[in-house]
Simulated assay, not measured.
Amino acid sequence: MSTTWVLVGVEQFIYNGLFGNRRVTMFEDLWNSTYDLLSDTGFWLSVLGTVVKIIVILILARVILGFLKKVISQTLKKRDGKYVNLSEQRSQTLVSLLHSIAANVIYFIAILLVLDELGFSLASVLVGAGVLGLAIGFGAQNVVRDVITGFFILYEDQFSVGDFITTGEYTGTVIDFGLRVTKIQDWTGEVNIIPNGHIEEVKNYSKENAYAVVDMRVSYQDRIEKTQEIIEEACLSVFKKEENMIQKPEMLGLQEIGESGAVIRTIALCKPVMQWGVEREMRRAILDAFAEKGVEVPYQQITVHQKENVS
Score class of each variant (00 low, 15 high):
S2A: 09
S2N: 06
V6D: 02
V6I: 10
L7K: 04
Y15W: 06
N21Y: 15
R23M: 12
F27R: 08
D29L: 10
L30W: 11
W31G: 09
N32M: 05
D36M: 15
D40G: 04
D40T: 10
G42Y: 08
F43I: 13
F43N: 15
G49N: 13
V51E: 09
I59T: 13
L65C: 11
T75C: 03
K77V: 00
Y83C: 06
V84H: 01
S87K: 06
S87Q: 07
E88Q: 02
E88W: 01
Q89F: 12
V95H: 01
I101L: 14
I101G: 00
A103H: 14
N104P: 05
F108W: 13
F108Q: 07
I109N: 07
V114P: 01
S121M: 10
L134H: 04
F138K: 10
V144R: 07
T149D: 12
I153K: 09
Q158Y: 14
G162Y: 05
T167C: 09
D176Q: 14
T182W: 14
Q185R: 14
E190S: 12
V191G: 04
K207G: 02
Y211H: 01
Y211G: 00
V213W: 04
V214A: 11
D215W: 08
Y220A: 08
I224Y: 06
E225H: 07
C235Q: 01
L236M: 05
E242M: 01
P249S: 00
G253P: 03
L254H: 03
I257G: 04
L269T: 00
Q275M: 07
E279F: 01
R280W: 07
R284T: 11
R284E: 09
D288K: 14
P298W: 15
Q306S: 11
